[in-house]
Amino acid sequence: MNKILKLTVNGVAREVAAPDNAILLDVLRESCRLTGTKRGCDMGTCGCCTVLIDGENRLSCLTLAAQAAGKEITTVEALGTPNRLHPIQAAFSEIGGSQCGFCTPGFIMTTKALLDRNPDPDDKEIREAISGNLCRCTGYIKIIDAVKVAAKELAPEPARPTPPIAAPARRAK
């Protein structure tokens, strides 16, 4: 039986009808039509489904939608658009931190959570922070490089305004 859940996704308050056993990943992809978040292993071992819940990177495949109700959910759609990439996305694209791209949204969100709490991570901290996300293509090296470049881009400089974040990319019909 469906219940009405109140979710805040990418800054937009939504009401979603979902059964008790609904997984956040399914609600994001199916009900909210936010398919940027990927279903990989579905068992918490690949990190493709990473989203931010109250700023913390979490596995949406192992989170009930009900557990995320009332919290700020951020998906990759909130970061940038193809024509206006977020600095993290731009760095992954330019440095080669993405090949087939399936793990990329998860890595982007994990990077966002990392850089939000640690704007200048060293190599070891980056490797540790992304060690819950699996990539079969890149060998991680260019992902690590991209995180470093993104960190530099995002570093607060007095002369430059901080790049705009948020603004939902798509709305549910």
């Binding site: 913390e56 596995l59 192992l62 989170t63 994990t110 540790e128 060690s131 819950g132 996300n133």
Partner: peptide, 9 residues
Amino acid sequence: IASPLIRNS
């Protein structure tokens, strides 16, 4: 324990 993502939950 496990991975950073698992430890967050």
